[in-house]
Simulated scan of single mutants.
Amino acid sequence: MEINENAALLVIDVQRGFEEEGFWGPRNNPEADANIAALIDAWQSGGRPVVFVRHDSTSPRSPLRTGEEGNGFKEYVEERRGKGAGAELLVTKSVNSAFYGSPDLDGWLREAGVGQLVVAGIQTNMCAETTARMGGNLGYEVFFALDATYTFDLTGPYGWTLSAEELARATAVTLHGGGFATVVRTRELVAAAAPAVG
């Protein structure tokens, strides 16, 4: 795997409101936050661009709604903002895709000549997957850091319920098998982004 010098890391919706287990239900992948932090550190230390995406929910029940404590980034993300050697962007959105946020993510990336994206964050099968799909459709080479994402159990039509882990696997199969993105692990990305020695 080759990571370009200007590959952008998209950190999707890593917000305090996702800690409210009573609202969201059981989650998967307890290692996700440590992996997200490792990716931010690797990207910032290498001078690569990092995009922090925040979901400003318009739902009156959502812990992510504007003005609520849950709308803010988790502490480990907030303390890393503004610390990188590379470019940084804050995108706010109220829908699933970071490409439908403000400011215009696609325009910012293209102006910077970015062709590769790494997607990490919350939720695996919602905003992270939607952003990765759209990135692929827009012609970017997308790497999806599956173990740097997590999601929650979900009930759909006909009473069908899938666990968070089942949903994460479905996302991985859809993105990778469908050609939207290459599904990878955090350690692979960190190793590929490390500066060459010698």
Rank of each mutant, 00 (worst) to 15 (best):
M1R: 12
I3K: 15
N4L: 15
E5H: 14
L9C: 12
L9M: 06
V11K: 04
D13C: 04
D13H: 02
V14Y: 03
E19L: 12
E19F: 01
E19C: 05
E20D: 06
E21G: 01
G22Y: 03
G22M: 01
W24M: 03
W24E: 02
W24S: 03
W24I: 03
G25M: 08
G25E: 13
R27C: 08
E31W: 10
A32Y: 06
A34T: 12
A37E: 15
A38N: 07
L39N: 00
L39K: 11
A42M: 09
A42Y: 14
Q44G: 14
S45F: 07
G46F: 14
G47Y: 05
G47N: 06
V50R: 07
V53D: 03
R54G: 03
R54S: 08
P60S: 07
P60D: 08
R61E: 08
R61M: 11
S62D: 01
P63Q: 04
L64G: 01
R65K: 04
G67L: 06
E68K: 09
N71D: 10
N71G: 06
N71Y: 02
G72M: 05
G72K: 12
F73T: 00
K74H: 05
E75A: 11
V77Q: 09
E79Y: 07
K83I: 06
A85L: 11
G86F: 15
G86T: 00
A87Q: 08
E88S: 15
E88K: 14
L90T: 03
L90P: 05
V91H: 09
T92N: 15
S94N: 09
S94C: 12
N96E: 13
S97P: 02
G101K: 14
P103I: 07
G107V: 06
R110W: 05
V114R: 00
Q116F: 00
G121Q: 06
I122Y: 14
I122H: 04
Q123K: 01
T124Q: 10
T124A: 04
M126W: 11
A128E: 01
T130K: 03
A132M: 14
R133D: 12
G135Q: 10
G135K: 03
G136D: 10
N137T: 15
N137Q: 14
L138M: 13
G139F: 14
F143C: 07
L146M: 12
A148K: 11
A148R: 11
Y150F: 14
Y150C: 07
Y150G: 00
F152S: 01
F152P: 03
D153S: 04
D153T: 14
D153L: 09
L154F: 09
T155H: 05
T155Y: 07
P157E: 11
G159Y: 10
W160K: 12
E165W: 02
E165H: 04
L167Y: 12
V173F: 08
T174R: 10
H176P: 07
G177V: 06
G179L: 03
F180H: 01
T182G: 13
T182C: 10
V184N: 15
T186R: 06
R187C: 14
E188K: 12
E188I: 10
E188Y: 15
A193W: 08
P195A: 15
